[in-house]
Design a protein around this nucleic acid. Structure first.
Length: 229
DNA sequence: GCGACAG
DNA sequence: ATCTTGTCGC
């Protein structure tokens, strides 16, 4: 599917409602992927310059398999609920530069835990027709109890009587992250991947590395030697 | 009407 | 998202 840039906020909501029709949200679990590709963007203050990074991580070892970046100008302002239109153009460019097609995508943000049930992870997943989910650091919509303190524990995130995601403990005793399904993946699988991809840090390795690398490139710091392409 | 509000 | 060092605590 092709990305469409809205002319204003109302148009953006229209696009989201349209694409929402293509969402696929399985209940059943799927076979675990061998790799997961994390996405994130770093912005420069006082300008529209930004750098996106797509980092493919080996699920078993959590080691970096491949890195791709894209630099450019952001054309849409940050508006809660419309984050996708600000980040998708550059993210698609970075993803397109990967040698290996992503198996599963993980975004720094939300999937269906969104005002119109169509967050960044849903949008990207539908456009690329790939499984995708979101892992956010702070709350957006929905309420729920705090999960038990042990790593792997979680509690449901609900809104208007429906479960839209989970508050997941990726590290024992540390503030939980918010996981929500984006496209072609069950909430249970997204939760398991979020935990499996986290180890020493609260943020799963794919998005954590994408965050670090996009920032390094933005600041013109030495590019990781193990990267190629 | 008054907050809240992914990144 | 971004401006920013050290410091306290497990």
């Amino acid at each position: 599917m092709k990305f469409e840039m809205p002319v204003d906020a109302a148009d953006g909501e229209r696009i989201q409602r349209e694409l929402h029709e293509h969402l696929i949200l399985p209940t059943e679990s799927s076979a675990p992927p061998k790799t997961v590709t994390g996405l994130d963007i770093s912005y420069e203050i006082g300008s529209e310059r930004a750098v996106a990074a797509a980092v493919t991580i080996d699920v078993t070892t959590r080691a970096v398999r491949e890195v791709a970046v894209a630099e450019g100008k952001v054309l849409f302002p940050y508006v809660p609920g419309l984050l996708a239109f600000r980040e998708i153009p550059l993210l698609l460019e970075a993803i397109g530069r990967l040698t290996a097609e992503p198996e599963v995508l993980v975004c720094d943000g939300y999937g269906i835990a969104h005002p119109r049930r169509f967050g960044l992870a849903c949008h990207l997943g539908v456009l690329l027709d790939r499984p995708a989910f979101g892992v956010a650091k702070t709350s957006f919509i929905g309420t729920g109890d705090d999960p038990a303190p042990a790593r792997g524990e979680w509690s449901a995130l609900s809104d208007g009587g429906e479960v839209i995601g989970r508050s997941v403990r990726t590290r024992t005793g540390v503030k939980p992250v918010f996981v929500s399904a984006g496209h072609r993946i069950s909430l249970a699988d997204a939760t398991e991947l979020a935990v499996a991809l986290s180890g020493r840090y609260r943020i799963p390795e794919p998005t954590r590395q994408a965050d670090i690398i996009s920032r390094q490139v933005l600041r013109g710091e030495p590019f990781p030697s193990w990267q190629r392409g």
